[in-house]
């Protein structure tokens, strides 16, 4: 019995050891920033630039570590971590934010905005301001910036697409969120939810007939090996959200908060420029690799816009769209 007691004591001691965090806490702030894109994507370099600028301005007090290719985990998992106050950040989109505040989904609907200039206007709008506030107060997301624009999304397939009917019966990969699925369905295709990383094998195995992505996704994923046409449907101008935890954000000194936000906006604007420059290079490169581009002028955009209206109705954001378009003086 004596033996047993001694043994129990030892066990308890070990358990106690386990429960005590062993590493010393340092006062330096670290943000682990995750994105799903490849290290070759202009965004990765953009995030590294942002990290460098923030580290310099805070004299090393706030450090950002960038993780590419979803190394830190699945996007949806990271978002939930952010809600719980972790020092992680994520590059995400309106469709995912719409899972929390449904109205935001409007930003991810077909033909909602036509240019980066219109996106810049968005941030000043009272409606948008309210969304950000709800995200922060109710769900714990701090949106640092949405000046990061990834370019226009186009359908990429193995046959030319000129009008919505051409998409009929085609299985097009989309992210799994309802907003994406409904938008793509409205435009005439059959959405198939597949993770970003599985796109290449799915195309290779013909589990899907095409994708809808931006030009800059093509080289990193070697899509020219498995797809023939880029149809410039410009159906969504992809606005990205850089989000961190509101709780973590509040724990930063106010000067750091300001620097983090400012530099994020700044890096976003620069990266957007790079993105559009790079698209031109990519266009040249993929044509050399044998892809065919169906330019916007050959596409019945009006028909696509009309078809896209359905997404607003299904997602019940038509009224929101009308309101914002009115505020923007857009028809």
């Amino acid at each position: 019995m004596k033996n047993f007691k001694r043994f129990l004591m030892l066990g308890l001691l070990v358990l106690l050891l386990l429960a005590v965090p062993l590493s010393a806490q340092t006062r330096q702030f670290v943000l682990k920033f995750n994105h799903v894109l490849s290290p070759l994507d202009p965004y990765h370099e953009g995030f590294l630039k942002w990290a460098k600028a923030v580290e310099e301005r805070t004299k090393g007090g706030l450090k950002i570590e960038v993780y590419h290719s979803a190394q830190l985990g699945v996007e949806e998992d990271i978002l939930e971590q952010i809600r719980q106050g972790a020092n992680v950040g994520q590059n995400t989109d309106a469709a995912r934010m719409a899972m929390y505040v449904p109205e935001i989904g409007v930003m991810n609907c077909p033909y909602f905005v036509d240019s980066p200039e219109e996106v810049a206007k968005l941030k000043k709008m009272p409606t948008v301001h309210n969304w950000l506030k709800t995200l922060e107060e109710k769900y714990g997301f701090k949106v640092l910036s949405f000046t990061w624009i990834q370019g226009f999304r186009h359908f990429m397939t193995n046959k030319p697409i000129k009008k919505p009917e051409d998409l009929k019966g085609l299985r097009i990969r989309t992210p799994g969120t309802p907003v994406w699925q409904e938008s793509i369905r409205a435009l005439g295709a059959t959405p198939v939810a597949i993770a970003f990383g599985d796109i290449y094998p799915a195309l290779q195995q013909k589990a899907i007939d095409g994708v809808e992505l931006v030009y800059n996704n093509i080289p990193g994923m070697r899509l020219y090996e498995v797809l023939k046409y880029v149809n410039e449907t410009r159906h969504i101008l992809l606005i990205n959200f850089e989000v961190v935890s509101a709780k973590w954000f509040r724990s930063l000194p106010p000067t750091y908060q300001k620097i983090l936000e400012e530099e994020c906006d700044k890096a976003g604007l620069e990266t957007t420029k790079v993105v559009f420059q790079k698209e031109e290079e990519v266009k040249k490169m993929i044509q050399e690799k044998g892809m065919i581009i169906v330019p916007t002028k050959d596409i019945d955009l009006e028909a696509f816009k009309k078809a896209g209206e359905k997404a607003y109705e299904v997602l019940k954001v038509k009224e929101v769209k009308d309101r914002i378009w009115k505020e923007m003086r857009k028809k």
Binding site: E76, M99, G176, T177, P178, Q181
Partner: peptide, 19 residues
Amino acid sequence: KLAFIQRYRTFEGMYGFSY
């Protein structure tokens, strides 16, 4: 606790089905 936190999250690919 995590299940409760995630009640807003949608299960990928199934509309209206909570994670």
